[in-house]
Simulated scan of single mutants.
Amino acid sequence: MDKKNPIAVVTGVGPGTGAAIARRFASGGYAVAMLARNRDRLAALEREIPNSHAYQCDVTDEAQLDVTLDAIRATLGAPRVLIHNAVGGAFGNFMEIDPKVLNQNFQVNTMALLYLARRLAPAMIAAGEGAIIASGNTSALRGKASFAGFAPTKAAQRILAESMARELGPKGVHVAYVLIDAVIDLEWTRKRFPEAPDEFFIKPAAIADEVWHVAHQDRSAWSFNVEVRPYRETW
């Protein structure tokens, strides 16, 4: 393939936001490395999305990440953009949750961002350009009772991203946190909210468009906290 194509790494590529982000960056001229644990789903998306490349990987496993990122560099080149969209979630109050679940969600949401950034940021710094974007949600800002197994990990993820932004921004690498304050329009969410009108949901493609915009902002006007929500969302 033509290695002149910039490289984007997208984690957590499933049927919703991850796939939409992969499509948006591929349509924008990127070679997209799609990471997820589900091999069959990745293979189907690889056939569907031009210039996309499937890599089965558990982002919480450093050894797997090293193998995967080495393969991406060898085949595609050094990534210019990282979108950490993989997410671990669980519902329950602090008495109900299994502490192991909270720890696992922390590994997916926060530690995986750290692992990925530590491996990809040095080449971005050397190139003097790059973007690292984490997809978040309202739990990064507040801890509701039933979100005790999830919200602490998203809050930590946002603060880690902010720390990274303050370190990497002056070196030419844009770090941002795209907070999704909405129910994403997916098959299972439609079933969960069968009576909800269309405007209740946020479209994955619309999220992807905003991620694309943030990744390509002019250096004189970089954003960090970016919030997206449907126009009728109460906030």
Rank of each mutant, 00 (worst) to 15 (best):
D2C: 05
K4F: 14
A8M: 12
V9T: 12
V10G: 07
T11I: 09
G12R: 11
V13L: 04
G14F: 07
G16E: 08
T17P: 00
G18H: 05
G18L: 02
A22Q: 03
A22N: 06
R23S: 10
G28L: 06
G29M: 10
Y30R: 05
V32G: 06
M34L: 06
M34V: 05
A36I: 09
D40R: 06
D40P: 01
L42T: 02
L42W: 12
A44N: 13
A44R: 14
E46F: 00
R47F: 08
E48W: 07
E48A: 13
P50M: 07
H53Y: 15
H53W: 15
H53R: 05
Y55W: 08
Q56E: 15
C57R: 01
D61T: 07
E62V: 06
V67F: 00
T68W: 02
T68G: 00
T68L: 01
A71G: 04
I72A: 03
G77E: 12
G77V: 13
R80G: 13
N85H: 11
F91A: 11
N93V: 06
F94D: 07
M95S: 14
L102S: 06
N103Q: 13
V108Y: 13
L114S: 09
Y115F: 14
L116R: 02
L116G: 05
A117N: 02
A117H: 03
A121M: 01
A123W: 09
A126T: 13
A126G: 08
A127E: 10
G130P: 08
A134I: 13
A134K: 02
S135Y: 12
G136A: 14
T138S: 15
A140C: 11
L141P: 05
L141N: 11
G143A: 11
K144P: 15
A145N: 11
P152Y: 07
T153R: 04
T153M: 00
K154E: 00
R158Y: 03
I159A: 11
I159R: 10
A161P: 06
S163N: 14
A165Q: 08
R166P: 00
G172D: 05
H174D: 01
A176N: 01
Y177A: 01
V178S: 01
V183F: 06
I184E: 05
I184P: 06
D185E: 13
L186Q: 14
P194V: 04
P194C: 06
E195W: 03
E195R: 05
E195V: 04
F200A: 01
F201L: 03
I202L: 15
I202T: 14
A206D: 15
A208T: 01
W212C: 00
W212D: 01
W212M: 07
V214W: 08
H216T: 09
Q217A: 03
D218M: 05
D218T: 03
D218L: 03
R219Q: 12
S220Q: 12
A221M: 05
W222K: 01
S223E: 11
Y231F: 13
Y231R: 07
E233G: 02
W235C: 02
